[in-house]
Design a protein around this nucleic acid. Structure first.
Lengths: 345, 345
DNA sequence: TTGTAAGCGTTATCAG
DNA sequence: CTGATAACGCTTACAA
């Protein structure tokens, strides 16, 4: 087992000083060709690589970025993660991921852990519980320490930092308008139980679209499903569809949409003729569902890239301390992908 | 902006030595009650937290584990990651994730980067390209340096380290046997283009099952699809189903299975009456497909937990250097989850 | 009870 | 051209 070699070992072996070795490896002009060659040869032979931890300590830069997300077995978040990871890697950064599991406490703990020098900055989407509690002190503490933070998707106005979003409300409005254009009269809103920030925005877009046409909002057309999708009971949805004579449904995520499509099919309804569906999150489900689902693509990867770019720029800009910082909020345009669950045109 | 505070600051402020502060914060018996209280109060007030990097350097332990996986937007891998992350977190470790993107080079680069002191050990699944090249020098270098490594799912016999697997071959055999029990005569094997290690094992299980009954293996019943699922052409599959009069299909992943089911349905075949399907990977697709897909659950989360446990135990065991190490391979029993794409019973 | 000093591995400054 | 020294932040013998 050839243990990791350090500058000290090389210096001892070659009978030169540590600083000479350090400089020689950096090809410094100060060092003679002879010594440099000798040192470099030795270093290569023993596969010397500088210790990242020591360098981090010296530079007060870890080249790590911390990503805290509510859930990892989740198409949208992994997609964003992919964007972050790719961009960060290419810039020489590594990514430490923590999963908050939608829990406020875990979010706080993870954040504090990483804030103690392990990362140069954070990219995160707030947990549901955090949004519910409306408590952002852990974020404030971090930013006050001068650690850059970028929030994406699940953000909070109360937190002063860079943000990356999609135009949830506007795209929802467009989606619902599309349904209205096609002559749908009884458009259901299928949303989550306790309003998440994003579901909320999507719901607003739904209202906007109705208002655009001076349509009254019918509370009976709104159904709230538990956020935990699995083993969802079909009965209440079926009852809802029947009672309200629903002819289209706008769903705040793809699970809900696919599940509802199934219910509709079981009822003997034809999609999209009798009832149309639009979902959110362009994941595999949307692509493989039958019929394929018309859905809103959130461009997660792009979102991740932008978040990483914003963060790394912050991290690398010499933080001239008291200079007043200006934070940005970037809005990415979502795209409606039309498939077979709506009438094309 | 209240910058991060260090022992030195506290010491200066309280006019004691750094070591006194250090000890006081650790509640050392050596220090007087008075001093301890004073120091602890001050530390709490200014929210002192020891710098992880400095501690890592001192202890030669980072409390980070490196996870390298081929792909992150992937149900199985995220599931494993979840297990790793949960176990690791609970043991006070953080997880650095790198995505190899199925590329040998990226795998090597990422590994070398992290091996320079950033992590205490690795958990990984080999990239497709690595398995194809059969080049495992990067892994060997790491283990030779005494850095623990645990491989999961996509492993290689050539690498000497701990491993976590599922019984791919055996469960595949069972699955195919199930189809045979139901009287299926023309069972297709739907597999990947260039054999991945795991696809290979699953294919062997398929062969085993046929041999169990002294059935000849019909090469015409094997179809290889490109590993990149999207936009897959339906025509060749349809032609295959027709020409070979397939009455059941064993697919090495859920995408293939769902896609093939769609093709069969478009052909007017009834599932499971006319043709049955079994897939691998129990993801959302399997659950939401219609009909729901009978599939092999790989218990990714459990796999991740076990991998993390094995790794952390290695990391924490005092590595009495030359003591011969014995490596383990844990095999997790996969489970066949019966749904509507096969006949129940 | 408190403080000094060495060390973890590296880099940068300055002296020789 | 080379080397000693200090520093990054912390811990821990060992001295005082």
């Amino acid at each position: 087992m050839k243990r990791k070699i350090t500058l000290k070992h090389i210096a001892r072996e070659l009978e030169v000083s540590i600083s000479t070795v350090s400089k020689a490896l950096k090809n410094s002009e100060e060092i003679s060709r002879d010594t440099k060659e000798k040192v470099q040869a030795f270093a290569k032979l023993y596969n010397y690589k500088p210790n990242n931890v020591a360098i981090s300590l010296k530079n007060k830069r870890t080249k790590n970025i911390g990503v805290i997300i509510p859930e990892i077995v989740h198409h949208f978040f992994t997609t964003v993660f992919r964007g972050i990871e790719q961009y960060a890697n290419q810039k020489g950064y590594n990514v430490i991921v923590c999963v908050s599991d939608e829990s406020f406490d875990k979010e706080v703990i993870n954040m504090e852990l990483l804030a103690n020098g392990s990362v140069d900055g954070f990219i995160m989407a707030l947990s549901a519980e955090t949004q519910l509690k409306n408590d952002y002190n852990h974020l404030k503490e971090v930013t006050e320490q001068g650690i850059p933070l970028v929030l994406f998707d699940r953000v909070a106005d109360e937190v002063v930092c860079d943000k990356v979003l999609i135009n949830d409300r506007e795209i929802a409005r467009q989606a619902v308008n599309k349904l209205l254009d096609q002559g749908r009269k009884r458009i259901a809103l299928v949303t989550t139980d306790n309003y998440l920030n994003v579901s909320n925005k999507r719901a607003r877009g739904y209202f906007d679209a109705l208002e655009d046409r001076n349509r009254a909002i019918d509370e009976n057309l709104i159904i709230k499903l538990p956020y935990t999708y699995l083993g969802m009971d079909k009965v209440p949805i079926q009852a809802f569809f029947e009672k309200e004579a629903v002819d289209a449904a706008f769903c705040v995520n793809e699970m809900f949409a696919v599940h509802c499509m199934r219910v509709a099919q079981d009822m003997g309804l034809k999609i999209p003729e009798d009832i149309s569906f639009i979902g959110f999150t362009d994941g595999i489900l949307s692509q493989y569902a039958s019929p394929t689902l018309t859905t809103v693509a959130q461009h997660g990867q792009q979102m991740g890239e932008i978040a990483a770019k914003m963060l790394i720029e912050r991290v690398e800009q010499e933080n001239d301390d008291d200079e007043e910082e200006v934070f940005q909020t970037k809005v990415i345009e979502a795209t409606l992908i039309e498939r077979d669950s709506t009438i094309n045109g």
